[in-house]
Write a protein that binds this DNA or RNA. Structure first.
Lengths: 218, 218
DNA sequence: TGACTGTATATACGATTGTATAGTAATATA
DNA sequence: TATATTACTATACAATCGTATATACAGTCA
């Protein structure tokens, strides 16, 4: 019976009495919050231990299993939170952009502003994309694909409005997304001044891709 | 006396009798090799424990301190090995490239061929750039800068030979490097067939940057 | 041949980890 | 009200960790 504790967490409540029993005193969100304060701005999620999270959340170690099967599952939940949060922010910023403004410039600006604001979620997406379990990495990859898709739609619409054409929308959006995330990750280790320079350089890079894809599209 | 064991590792041998004492039975290289087999193709260097490495290397845990102050120092050594190895390979490939061939295409090809060959070092550079201690991350960053510099030189020379001009050589080389590493990291989780598709897409991306920087350079 | 010196090992300690086991507190339903 | 069900805690255990301490071994040099 190695799976006892884990199995309990996924048991489907018997339909006959699914409102029975003691009420939860804590929910996933609170555990996620505890995990967030633990990882802080620099620490890796992969270094979180079950006991540590439980301690921070103020529950007994075993109670953790009521809410997550493993620490990995918590990590995936963290990543999903992070992705949702960032997409909301970037999406809102895109809508604010007037027709005359540069989508590229303002998106990068918002991205780095979020960095400066020491967003709880952002660094998780940035740092942890390449390590940890397979599930873990796929969760991050999944979030990045969301960004790519949204950017692609924006890109195609914007360019066709101006009568141009993008060479390979998928590759273009992906290149831009990955580049921004790569640069954003470097920014985590930088001072505010260095970040500004980095932002400028990133915009230059994105412009190269934009000019290139437009030239190749015609 | 918390630093006793660590201090011993850096003691400068007294000049009066520096040939005295028992000869080392193991050297850093062997420990690095042990660490490499432990991390395998997927595991993170950050998860290595001192005891584990010592076990694999066939030495007592404390003997580790004779060669490295901390596991972090071992990790940095691993990264330096990895960078040196990859640069040698890519450099050799570049020299083989005839004047008519595409530097971009063949570089990416070599890069991904190295992936397929399950190179011991490559995945370390790819996966671990964003986690671990500050020292650790800086070591990876340092290696990437080497790549950028070499690429920049190649780029400027190649383009000026054809009478063109690159817009911003630094940004161009950096964008290309970071993009290749980002894509290479994704490739680690892929099958051979998926990797081929990814390689094509990556070449497309790099071409966009190339076309863009050339257009902006004139 | 000692004495000295650097290398490696054996042993041990306290801390922390994940989790198995058993028991208590709280609630809806019969 | 009695019972079933759920949420949670307390305790315990074996494993692993980094490393302090002490000791044995293998060389060089006097």
């Amino acid at each position: 019976m190695q799976e006892t504790a884990r199995a309990r967490a996924t048991e489907v409540p018997a339909q006959t009495a699914r409102n029975a029993g003691r009420r939860p005193e804590i929910d996933r969100e609170q555990i996620i919050q505890a995990a967030l304060t633990l990882v802080g701005p620099n620490r890796s999620v992969a270094t979180l231990s079950l006991r540590e999270v439980a301690r921070e959340a103020g529950i007994a170690p075993n109670s953790f299993y009521r809410h997550f099967r493993t620490v990995d599952e918590l990590a995936v939940a963290l990543i999903e939170c992070a992705g949702r949060s960032l997409r909301t922010i970037i999406g809102a910023a895109r809508q604010r952009v007037g027709r005359g403004q540069s989508v590229i410039g303002s998106s990068v600006e918002v991205f780095l502003a979020q960095l400066d604001a020491e967003d709880q979620f952002l660094h998780i997406l940035l740092r942890e994309g390449n390590v940890g379990s397979r599930e873990f990495r796929q969760a991050v990859e999944h979030q990045l694909c969301f960004f790519e898709d949204e950017l692609k739609v924006d890109l195609v619409r914007l360019v066709s409005l101006n009568g141009g054409a993008v060479h390979n929308p998928d590759a273009t959006a992906r290149a831009m997304t990955r580049l921004v995330f790569a640069m954003g990750t470097r920014a985590l280790d930088m001072t505010a001044a260095e970040r500004r320079a980095l932002a400028e350089e990133t915009v230059t890079m994105l412009r190269m891709i934009m000019v290139g894809t437009l030239a190749m599209g015609s």
